[in-house]
Design a protein around this nucleic acid. Structure first.
Lengths: 213, 213
DNA sequence: TCAAATATTGACTATCACTTCAAACTTCGT
DNA sequence: ACGAAGTTTGAAGTGATAGTCAATATTTGA
């Protein structure tokens, strides 16, 4: 919802029309988010986005004033959905902090590997993003991180985890997770799942959890 | 040394001239390696490289047939120097596998943070590199990894380390290290050193080494 | 049905970066 | 000193892609 459109239709516009506009914007964002998540921001041209929607790129400028604006909004969309999925998982799982953290990592990486191989890297490296856009991504990542941080701190408080600095652990975790899709890219589906499993085991060591058996 | 030049001067060429050519190539590679290491491959144009050398970009094509070729060679140079530095450190240190691994990680990240903030990412993500160039980078990374792997396996054999899969540990380690320069970018020098220290502590947990004190 | 509002087109411009190359310049060996 | 070999230049070519815009098509509401 509430995606900011900087370009407004002249004035007026019935709510019906506005809703239609909103839907169209969502369509665009969805398509863009998919592409950016698959290939990364730079590797996707507006022409690519337009093609997927069966329109021409000129039309995209009717809704977004620049690629960066579309990009920011699309990544926001992607991240929001992602966070929601993870939140749902966290809420639906019980057990020790270790169990839940492991499940969270597993799900997180699995989503990335299967659905959005390039998305985590976009979240992680907002290097080339201009001015304020960067803040937007940072904020998104923070929202994203909160889930992990909460579990880690819970585990630390419960004496389950050993950790030097939570921030550093989070950073290392994210960095590693963001690369997982790259390593897994050439693996068959079955092997991917096992690889993700091993990544989860390994990352659990960042909080002092030795692997099972 | 032995940098392959695909473009050869007509024929003949005295060894003296050839040596001069070799030196020039090294100058170019050094300049390019620095720039690529600072800003990453894509963010550096041939014009940038030429400018640093006080020549025009056309001149670069006298030595390298394309940006990719120059890029591959430059990264090779960077990686070779890097490995040499780390090798020296490993050879010059004694103590438990844990001590040496920690020192290695620390040095590795510190080089990256201080000298080549973007280099590790280039080593890690050869995504956009074409055909065979990719293999070259992979090989380089393997050479790079060998140092870490040797220490890790030693520690495992000695019963110091707990590890599920060495490859996964290596990957996570590298991914995390490659991001460290980004996190540290805005920190003052003193704080950088401490941050690197904490990264080392955290990464040691990947092999089951709880932090000190 | 028709005019106003909205949406889309496609051709055009601008820019940036890789690449080519003939001509000019420099260095080398004799 | 001189020609040949090696090096550099600057301008032009190419291609990809962001961004613009007047013309056109579609949708809306009365």
């Amino acid at each position: 919802m509430s995606t900011e459109e900087t370009i407004e239709p002249t004035r007026s516009a019935s709510s019906r029309v506005q809703r239609k506009r909103g839907r169209r914007i969502q369509e665009i964002l969805t398509a863009a988010a998919e592409l950016f998540g698959e290939r990364g921001y730079d590797a996707v041209s507006l022409e690519d986005v337009a093609e997927r929607l069966d329109v021409t790129k000129g039309s995209l400028y009717y809704y977004f004033s620049s690629k960066d604006e579309l990009g920011t909004a699309a990544i926001e969309t992607l991240g929001t959905e992602w966070t929601a999925r993870l939140q749902k998982l966290v809420d639906g799982t019980s057990g020790s902090a270790a169990d839940r953290l492991r499940a969270l990592i597993h799900e997180h990486v699995l989503i990335a590997v299967r659905d959005h191989p390039a998305a985590l890297q976009v979240f992680l490296v907002p290097r080339r993003w201009p001015h304020e856009q960067r803040e937007s991504i940072k904020e998104l990542r923070q929202r994203h991180d909160r889930l992990f941080r909460a579990l880690i701190e819970e585990g630390v408080a419960a004496g389950e985890f050993t950790v030097t600095g939570v921030d550093t652990v989070l950073q290392c975790m994210h960095a590693a997770m963001s690369q997982a899709p790259v390593w897994c890219a050439d693996l068959p589906a079955r092997a991917q799942y096992e690889a993700v499993d091993e990544v989860a085991d390994t990352l659990m060591m960042l909080v002092g959890q030795a692997p099972p058996e």
